[in-house]
Every structure is written in C-alpha cells, then in structure tokens.
Write a protein that binds this DNA or RNA. Structure first.
Lengths: 240, 240
DNA sequence: CCGTATTTGTCCGTATGTATG
DNA sequence: ACATACATACGGACAAATACG
C-alpha cells in the first residue's frame, strides 16, 4: 500500500492543520480508506492490517480501529473478531438484493426530482448528457463511468432529500464492490444507456413524475441486466 | 444512567464469556447503547459522556469510542469533534424526508412479500392482526406499538432481502428518534391502523403484488399523517 | 478575560487470541 | 502437537481542546 495521503505528513502543512480543526483522525482515516476501497486501490476481500494502515496513514492504531467500525456499518468492510477486517465481498445474490432496493430508491429520486428540480440543475443534467453523446463515438468506458456518477448525483441533489441521498450512496458503494468482485468493467452499452439518460432528463424537465419514476426504475434494471449479461455470457455479443 | 447491562459484570458469568467469544466489547457496547437509545432510556439530544458510559458498561473508553463511530454511521448519534457525542435529534423536516424513503421501501416490501411469503409467515401475520383486533377494544398503546413492530418485521422477513432489511430498520430507528423528539406517544388510531394491516395481509395472501405495494405505501403515509395530526392539533380530537 | 477543571483526542504498552512452521 | 511469531483487543497515560467559574 502506498504510504501517501492527506494524512501521513511528518511536518503537517497549513492545509492539513485546517483539516484537523474540523475532523478527527478517525474521520479522516475513514474517508481515506473509503476512497481507497471504492477506487479499487485496496482490492475486494483484502485484509486490512491495523498497524500497516496506521503507519501508512501516519496515525496510531486507535483512530484506525474507530474508522474500521464506521466502515463496517457503512457496509464497506467486514469485521471478524480476533481475525481482522476485510474489504467486503458482495455476492451475486446480494447484488440482486441491492439492485431491488436501488431500483425502488431510484424511482423515488425520479419522482422527487421531477417535482423539485431547479433550472440550473436541469442545465447541468443536459450538459452531462451532451458529454455522454460526445463520448459515445469513442467508447471511453472510464470517462462514461464518471459522467454516469455525475448524472445520478445531480438528480440526487435535485430530489432534495438527505436521507434518500445517504441510503442511495451506500447502495451504490456496495454495487461498486460487486462490480469489482466480478471484475466486470465497462459492461454498459453506452449508446443505449445514454439514450435512457436523455429520456430521463426530458421526463424530469416536463415535470412528469410518473414517467421519470418509471424510466429510472427501468434504467436501473437495464443496468443490472447489462452487468449480468456481461457475466453470464462473456463470449456472446449482447443485444441492446 | 443505571449501571446495568449484559456487560459490567465484575466476575464474568459463563454466558458473558460465551458472548465475548464472538463479540468484541465494542460491538456489545454498540448494541447496548442502541438499545438504550431506541428504548428512550437515554433521551434524545442527551450527551453521551465517554467515561461515564465506559464505567457504566464496565469497559474502557476504547470500545466505547468505537461504538460511537458505528452508532454515528447508523444515524443514532451525532459526533461533534472536541465537543462530544449526542443522541441524534430528528427534525420535522428530516422526518418528512425519512417518511418519503420509508414509503418507497415499504412498497417494495409489500411487493416482495407478496411474491415470496411462506405459509407459516402468513399464519404469523394473521395471528398478529388477530391480537391487534383483540387489543382494539382496550386501546393499549404500548402493546399495539409492539405488535405493529412485529407485523412489519414478519413482512420484512417474508420479503427475503437482507439489504432491504438493513436500510428499512435504520429508517424506522430514525423515525423512533423523531417520535421521541416530539414526545408524541400512541398517536395511532388503532382501529383504522388495524384494518389497514388486515387489508395488507389479505393482499399479500392473494399474492397481489401491486395491491400489497399500494396498501403499504398508503399505510406509511397514513401513519405519518396521524402523527403530524397529533402534533399540529394537540388539543383537538382527531378524526380517523 | 483568565485560570482551572473536565472531557475529548491520540498514542502506546500489554494481554489474549490466531496462524504458521 | 507444540512452540513461535504475529495480529487484534483492551486498557491506561499523556496531550489538546472545551467548558466553567
């Protein structure tokens, strides 16, 4: 593990001191570990050694242990008493369960966003979809992935519901673990997915709650099918 | 705070030792604090003093601090750096947001339960509703509250989705904090609520997913209205 | 506004349990 | 099976920040 981060400075910089004014080392360690896990920097199933991580982050073991408990509740790691902490592995069955919940929340996001979205947020959504169409031709998987995250984040803000945002983000994190578990990357059919995004924006813009809800639920289920399709038949070309 | 719990035994009993074989002190402390918070033993907004709780539980501050981090992620407490940990207060606005999410999940529970419920679970649901009708006449608020929890727990099991259960339980916990915050107890109109439960059981028994979903969503929204009604007009008698 | 007491934040030592040869 | 090495679990000491008089 590379021993670098916002933490781990021998001589704390002014910025680091400012961070510590508001955040405990435990919270900073939690965020840093969350970043390393969701980014794939730490592999799924990997064991998190207290002393290694503590030294890598330049803190003692106390804050690291506290961060572990938070990450456990957040569903990112699994704690086994007297054995250690491991990056959580999400099975196919669990992923299907999570998708069911996510679809329900995604539908709610669509309904609320159609009610509450502001003009500037609509502009942002349209800008993201525009970038998606531009990307469409070159098939850049990683860039598309980021735009997709941005799209759903804008919708989430537009829904104006903090509890919804909290639970939705956790589900997305868990699905990322599954994606990494299965080593499937770029399974999205970008042209199809982009058109779905476009239709969603139009529904939200028309303030059509029912349509936005339905399109987002279907969008999630389609994403799941595309992912499973990539898993089940890796050699076969997938129809839209 | 009463210094009693499964923990805090000077001479650990055999049962306590068995507990410790599988659970760390941090996890036990977390559960115990969760119980004390959700039961109202510790008041909403109260400050949780590390040393007091540690001595009350008969452990050191380390496990208590770890439990705090987990409870923070679980939405039961709020951590302010260098100031302390407080039982979370849920405002009216937050409660409304949580209700929106809960309604969506409750609808999903109804749909999945209608798909997947087993005969013995249906029997359990009917038994609970029967008890509710029996209670109906004597208007026992606390007993009804417990039956209500049991009813929704059976449905949750019948839905057979662990992720759904996790997120649903957290939302219910948060709404309990709101209920306690507003000091509203027994705001349910028991006859009406019981009939709603009965209708839900019938829909699930008929495997009518759409109806079960709709009835449960409405049930949640009605519960919210009954609660808000009790808040807005405390002096007035509430109509159904 | 300052000094003191209390509380939180962090670190490290020790005990206990687990994995390995 | 045993012994050794290693990792985690817990407790306690010290430092820093906050609250109080």
């Amino acid at each position: 593990m590379p021993p670098q981060s916002e933490l781990n400075k021998r001589a704390p910089t002014a910025a680091a001191i400012e961070l510590l004014r508001e955040n405990s080392l435990a919270m900073l360690a939690q965020r840093e570990l969350e970043r390393r896990i969701t980014s794939g920097e730490i592999a799924v199933g990997a064991k998190l050694n207290e002393v290694d991580i503590a030294s890598a982050l330049g803190v003692s073991r106390g804050p690291v242990r506290e961060a572990f408990r938070a990450l456990d509740q957040a569903g990112l790691v699994r704690v086994e008493k007297n054995r250690g902490v491991f990056v959580r592995q999400v099975s196919l069955e669990e992923a299907n369960e999570i998708y069911e919940v996510r679809a329900a929340l995604e539908g709610l996001i669509g309904r609320l966003a159609a009610q509450r979205i502001q003009p500037d947020e609509l502009d942002q959504l349209r800008a993201v979809v525009k970038k998606m169409f531009a990307l469409d031709k070159s098939r850049k998987g990683e860039a598309y992935f980021l735009l997709n995250v941005e799209f759903h984040d804008i919708l989430l803000r537009a829904a104006r519901n903090a509890a919804l945002a909290t639970h939705y983000r956790r589900l997305v994190n868990e699905l990322d673990l599954y994606r990494r578990e299965t080593l499937v990357r770029g399974s999205e059919n970008i042209p199809v997915s982009t058109r779905e995004h476009e239709a969603i924006v139009n529904a939200v813009a028309k303030r059509d709650e029912r349509l936005a809800e339905r399109l987002l639920v279907e969008h999630v289920l389609h994403s799941r099918e595309r992912l499973h399709g990539a898993l089940a038949k890796p050699a076969r070309t997938r129809a839209a």
